[in-house]
Design a protein around this nucleic acid. Structure first.
Length: 805
DNA sequence: GCGCCAACAGTACCA
DNA sequence: ACTGGTACTGTTGGCGCG
């Protein structure tokens, strides 16, 4: 630090943890929360960025005149500062715009409404960019990344940090990969619910278990049903530990709201942040805790496709933290009973403590990925999980748009217009040996690059063709100018080469090293964003939506796969199946090599052998198959085994049947297995949990037109006082009785084994799952259910002989 | 009133 | 709340039959 007169100057290197803004007397300040390179918690305040938005002008308007007209509104709009003409682009087209500065970011939308009515103004743009995001974009400041900033000592604010600084200039990004040593706290609350879902105005919090990454485990319990001290001690503990990251499961949609409502009921101040404010709801329904990153592990459930039923226990299992078998599981329905029972209360406490520990470990499994995604996309760490895929890519695009002088289109409502997508081939049913899967490498992104498909290169039919020429999409005829490189081409080229660089850097590293893990997380984040670009282009909610962009990309994809099939046939290769960007081919090494070469020469796209199946089984159905890999594992695609909406008993059945068929060549063995399993089930020897069928409520219960089983189960829970909303997953079982299926279901927690309609599970779960595979070998339902018949099921040999005849 | 069947609703998968 | 293509279960309601 250097002292110059009264002001103490210095530099601060920090890692950006959180950002918010404050407005006092219409003067905005950006507050950047970080951890510096010596482990101090810092707050850097910058008020240098003037809020602004744009007015887009009519083509024939005179910008200077419009500026005058705008500034004449100052009587009505006193916080207007300046209006300056600017040349910008919108969807690649040069446009006349006026940049309008105004003192307070919170009045922008109101001011824009007035200004958009002025003569010469077509509409206002960039009015919906939050001031803190504006700051990040304009100064190229990046969340979850290191920066250096010139600072002076800040005043004595009432905030919980080691240092407060005033920025003398915007922070500058520096390339440093490592994470600072973050203090992390996980918590797991348990509520006492007298009836149905706990209600904060009625039901106490009886336990909050916590786990911190310094090894500390704390458990806060109510004294019987009195939770004031519990909540107070929890608040005090958070303050004293002062974590940078605070993590839980379902904290955004549930727990923070409950804690807030409960604190209100008890007359307590729920201040657990660094600025003396309550948690508050922010963008995308996320709960913000100022100065800390509040992370909800539930928001990362979608990143794990093998996680079908999104319970905390399952996530902990999938992430490899603790297997389901090792975990204590107490259903929420039973929490109150456990608390009431002095004998079992300890068990409930132990359960909560275990969950808090596992949540912490689960976060550690995902943190570097979340950090890399946050840094790549430019959204703060605590927003990135909650932001849907479309918004992640959009924020990446917004940053790029700003760099190249593109105006950011407003988010508007557009009518839904479907278009044709990828091409799917009919599979050749049966078992095939030695099948090679060829995949186009990043097909859609590469098409967009090669054909310069982009919202800003689209040439509508009414527009004259540019001199540089156009690429014309097959079938649909959409035209895209060849030059200059479009927005998507630039972005995607950048992403793909970044990923290649990362991957080549990884080759020189030990896969166990932290550097490797960081790079791996980074390349995954880049891949996700790259692959989402096509879907984004066809999303009507996208700011840069242009239907022809997505439609043409898909059309080029279809023509390329069709041409590849022609070449393959020309080479005498047999195609067994294909979907969008893949071909399944009877493997002949030399000919496949030639195919790869010819496709890359002729189509300019790389296709490569992704894997070889020793054997692969197709039914009549598309998008469903099972392949045996050289290492002896099975690839199950689309079949009941991988579906979350079949009872586990059906999945076990099918998995074993597939193993018997593909590995052991034994139809008889498969049939015997199924028959045995049915017997076991009839004698109640299959675990109850394997009978639960899970389905997602996709809308509020009242909105359903038909009586579906899971909806009926949801209605039962609702009647008992449980809150259920769209997105909730309902686990139910089928019980004995008469009438429609939906009249014979119960939420699993309310049913006993004795009530179970075993025959439903036999006829509608086990048998269909088994026959999906076995019917092609002549096996019939009666072969699986009734006593053995005289008809011998066909063997594999029979099958092949029949096929050859 | 019953069984059959096609249309539809609803869900989850693949790329 | 990224896209379209697809399979599949269960409900609904119309139809023929008697």
């Amino acid at each position: 630090m250097v002292s110059r007169g009264m002001v103490i100057l210095g530099r601060c290197r920090f890692w950006l943890l959180d950002i918010n803004y404050e407005v006092k007397d219409h003067e905005p300040q950006v507050w950047i929360w970080g951890v510096d390179d010596e482990g101090r918690r810092v707050l850097i305040i910058d008020s240098s960025l003037e809020p602004y938005f744009y007015a887009l002008l009519d083509e024939n308007a005179y910008p200077e005149e419009v500026c005058t007209r705008i500034m004449n509104e100052r009587a009505k709009l006193p916080l207007l500062l300046r209006a300056i003409p600017e040349q910008k682009r919108l969807f690649g087209e040069p446009v006349k715009a006026v940049k309008i500065y105004c003192q307070d970011p919170d009045v922008i939308s109101k001011y824009a409404r007035v200004i958009s009515k002025l003569e010469g103004v077509r509409e206002c743009l960039e009015t919906d960019i939050r001031y803190s995001m504006r700051y990040l974009i304009d100064y190229d400041v990046t969340p979850s990344a290191w920066h250096e900033v010139e600072v002076e000592e800040g005043g004595d604010l009432n905030v919980q940090v080691d240092k407060v600084y005033i920025a003398r200039s915007p922070p500058k990004r520096i390339e440093m990969n490592d994470l600072p040593k973050l203090r992390i706290l996980s918590f797991f609350p348990v509520y006492y619910a007298s009836k149905g879902s706990p209600k904060p105005e009625r039901d106490p919090i009886v336990i909050i278990a916590t786990a911190a990454n310094n090894g500390e485990n704390r458990i806060f319990t109510a004294s019987e049903y009195e939770d004031r001290d519990l909540l107070r001690s929890f608040i005090d503990y958070v303050k004293s530990l002062d974590p940078d990251v605070i993590v839980g499961y379902q904290t955004n949609q549930r727990h923070w709201q409950y804690l807030m409502d409960r604190a209100k009921t008890l007359g307590l101040d729920l201040i657990v942040d660094r600025a003396g404010t309550w948690p508050h709801r922010s963008v995308y329904g996320h709960i913000s805790i100022t100065g800390r990153a509040s992370i909800d592990m539930f928001d990362f459930a979608d990143e794990l496709p093998e996680l079908k039923v999104k319970t905390l226990e399952n996530m902990i299992d999938i992430l490899g933290v603790k297997s389901l078998e090792e975990q204590k599981i107490i259903d929420e329905i039973e929490h109150s009973d456990f608390w009431d029972d002095k004998e079992r209360r300890g068990e409930l406490i132990e359960y909560a403590a275990e969950k808090a520990n596992c949540i912490l470990k689960a976060l550690m499994e995902m943190l570097i990925y979340a950090v890399e995604l946050s840094r790549l996309v430019g959204l703060p760490l605590d927003h990135i999980g909650k932001a849907a895929v479309g918004f992640r890519i959009e924020w990446y695009l917004i940053r790029e748009a700003h760099r190249i002088g593109e105006l950011i289109p407003e988010r508007t409502e557009k009518p839904y217009m479907p278009y044709a997508g990828g091409m799917v081939l009919k599979p050749k049913p049966g078992i095939h040996e030695n099948v090679c899967v060829l995949d186009f490498k990043s097909m859609y992104p590469n098409i967009m690059i090669e054909k310069n498909v982009s919202p800003d290169t689209y040439v509508p039919p009414s527009m004259p063709e540019p001199k540089s020429g156009v690429n014309v999409a097959p079938e649909v005829g959409h035209k895209f100018r060849k030059e200059p490189p479009g927005f998507y081409k630039r972005v995607l080229t950048q992403l793909i080469s970044a990923r290649n660089e990362i991957r080549s850097e990884m080759k020189n590293l030990d896969p166990k090293s932290l550097d490797y893990q960081l790079l791996d997380a980074r390349q995954k984040a880049v891949k996700v964003i790259t692959n989402a670009a096509y879907g984004y282009a066809g999303w009507i909610g996208a700011r840069w939506f242009r239907k022809p962009v997505a439609e043409a990309t898909a059309a080029w994809g279809r023509s390329m796969i069709m041409r590849s099939i022609e070449i393959a046939k020309d080479l005498g290769l047999e195609i067994v199946y294909g979907d969008t960007d893949s071909l399944f081919i009877k493997y002949k090494p030399e000919k496949v090599d030639m195919l790869v070469k010819r496709i890359s020469d002729e189509l300019g796209l790389e296709i490569r052998p992704e894997k070889i199946y020793r054997r692969i089984l197709f039914t009549e159905a598309k998008k469903r198959y099972c392949g045996l890999l050289p290492n002896g594992t099975l690839d199950n695609v689309g079949l009941e085994v991988v579906r979350g909406d079949w009872a586990n008993v059906a999945k076990i059945t099918q998995e074993r049947v597939l193993e018997m068929i593909l590995k052991e060549n034994s139809v008889e063995g498969a049939v015997e297995f199924v028959r045995g399993l049915i017997n076991d089930l009839r004698r109640h020897k299959i675990p109850f949990r394997d009978l639960i069928i899970w389905k997602t409520l996709t809308m509020p219960v009242e909105k359903y037109k038909v009586n579906a089983p899971h909806v009926e189960a949801a209605r039962i829970l609702k009647r008992m006082g449980w809150n259920l909303t769209a997105g909730d997953q309902i686990g139910y079982v089928v019980i004995q009785g008469s009438g429609r299926l939906y009249e014979r279901v119960k939420p699993y927690a309310l049913a006993t084994y004795d009530e179970i309609d075993v025959e439903y599970y036999v006829k509608k779960q086990i048998v269909p799952a088994a026959l999906r595979v076995l019917s092609m070998f002549g096996v019939k339902e009666k072969d699986l259910i009734s006593a053995p018949t005289s008809i011998r099921p066909k063997t594999l040999t029979d099958f092949f002989e029949a096929g050859k005849a």
